[in-house]
Nucleic acid binder design. Sequence first.
DNA 1: GGGTCTCGTGAAAACGCTTCCACGGCGCTA
DNA 2: TAGCGCCGTGGAAGCGTTTTCACGAGACCC
Lengths: 342, 342
Amino acid sequence: MTATGARPTTPTLDEVAVLAGVSRATVSRVVNDSPRVSPEARRAVEEAVATLRYVPNRAARSLVTRRTDTIALVLSESNTQVFSDPFFASIVRGLSERLADTDLNLVLLAARGESEQEKIGRYVRQGHVDGVILMSLHSDDLLPDILAGAHVPVVLSGRPLDGRPVAYVDADNAGGAAAATRHLLSLGRRRIATITGPLDMVAGLDRLAGYRAALADAAPPGVPELVAEGDFTEAGGLRAMTRLLAEAPDLDAVFVASDPMAVGALQALRAAGRRVPEDVAVVGFDDAAVAATCDPPLTTVAQPLGEMTSLMVELLLDQIEAGERAVGTRVCGTTLVRRASA
Amino acid sequence: MTATGARPTTPTLDEVAVLAGVSRATVSRVVNDSPRVSPEARRAVEEAVATLRYVPNRAARSLVTRRTDTIALVLSESNTQVFSDPFFASIVRGLSERLADTDLNLVLLAARGESEQEKIGRYVRQGHVDGVILMSLHSDDLLPDILAGAHVPVVLSGRPLDGRPVAYVDADNAGGAAAATRHLLSLGRRRIATITGPLDMVAGLDRLAGYRAALADAAPPGVPELVAEGDFTEAGGLRAMTRLLAEAPDLDAVFVASDPMAVGALQALRAAGRRVPEDVAVVGFDDAAVAATCDPPLTTVAQPLGEMTSLMVELLLDQIEAGERAVGTRVCGTTLVRRASA
DNA sequence: GGGTCTCGTGAAAACGCTTCCACGGCGCTA
DNA sequence: TAGCGCCGTGGAAGCGTTTTCACGAGACCC
């Protein structure tokens, strides 16, 4: 362990001002792109900033502006598994793309368990972030309440289960699931099972509700419900499919509430010697990358992820701008993407 | 979009002081657990804090202490795919566990591409974090240089490719790979292939080097190298295995540089009708959860992830404590975990 | 019983920035 | 030519903390 020298002190606004021969106020104006600065002063300051490698101190700045220019994506999920869900990866990608040309920073906060939720609550209340995008809520999640008490703008990814008044962006999960199920019906399938997401998550519940609604509305009499609960993971899909095959060996189609689970289901079907789509038609949900590459390519329900992340950011920025929380909700339509599996 | 009221102003130290009937200094002392406060004063302050729901303002605090009590895990990788690597998930879990009983916060910063790397550099230079743990470095990564210029403590996850003096924690990748390869030799295999990681990453290179060293040192003459480059993903493993089977149909073993790739390789082998381990023995790397559950269960090289994350945090805290960057390096041993695949 | 220590406390000075306000100097208009 | 307004600028007042320093009150020693 060798020391490589003490940390040099970073330059301050004062030093820049002295070097540029102007006042601190003028330096601040230049740094913040205020229009009321003469070209000469601006040039002098910019030069000084460059030679000193000056960077404004964020703590000092946000002490007075009361803004931090960072927003948090908080992920509340006991299972680190979430990280591997392509849906989550897409959200992260979408957000950082959307934020790229703003001067906002994105930080990820993950909470597994109650103590970490509290910790995040404290982090937010201390004023580390201007706003929060909250993902992956189970019904017993404390974070919405914690954040409500933090008086900070919040946008939920996904409709809140308890109907509380809060801004959120969601896909039309029920509509998409219903469309998928109707598609299977239109293929002539009559023993249509579903593998659900976790039933303490709104996406899980809504997709199941869509499946049920479609069977109730559009199916000929006598088409039964066949439901197995999954957990949005590939392994869970495999397990659920295996269970379904044991319970209903004559099923001829399955609507799977997420693509990773559908990939697992495909494996179970292959292991059981069923051909897809000849013996069993499969529809997934999410249109993850894997849906196009698996064997057979997966018919699935696509959500407009880019649009959704944009909307979340906009709803959040609106609140931050206005300096108050607000509830604005957007529900985005889904599309059925037809591939080989159904 | 309905307003739900303006954000109430949060209480300050002053208000607490007034309510408790003491000075600001005393309140500060109580909040920071200073010993030199009388029990009565302490009680009065704690009461006031509770009734006012006071939380210290972080900007003000770090303006004077020059600490933020947050450290960043920065992930430099153009591919959002990384998120789904179980290795990454384990690191995140390990770090947040290790940090749980400190008052340090962990934020995740992801950089895809140059502009986001710059953005992270700015974020760090602005003083948002006390230290950085840097992951997933490709050889052309700018971040080490950017962060070096930010004068902030840094610990790398993985040996730096260019040998720069910087603190890092790494597994003995070469040693683990060599052990895996020797294990295959000891099984009597003589046509041993390898699927590597990306060869611009140190883990990819070192594991390949270990494989080569083992063949050179421990193999009877005439045992050839068979190398296919992968990318640490399942799909990449499948592709690489397919390629290997085409090039060397008579191979009887394969050392795969990560478990997700090994899972892909297993699929390719099954598709080609090879039995594992009878026809082809397979060894993976990482001992990810999937290694125990896939079919057949995977013999693999385990790294002491918990120990590694702890060491990273300690190395980082040492530097923060000392107020200067330092280079301390730790290399952790690996163990071969025997399961059914080899 | 006087002097020295310790201990709890408060006043006040930073920390580095933004922003309000006042003040000259300039170009207009009348 | 006098008056008005605007524009660029600097001084200075905060923003909410921590921390140094000084101070008074007891406790203790000889």
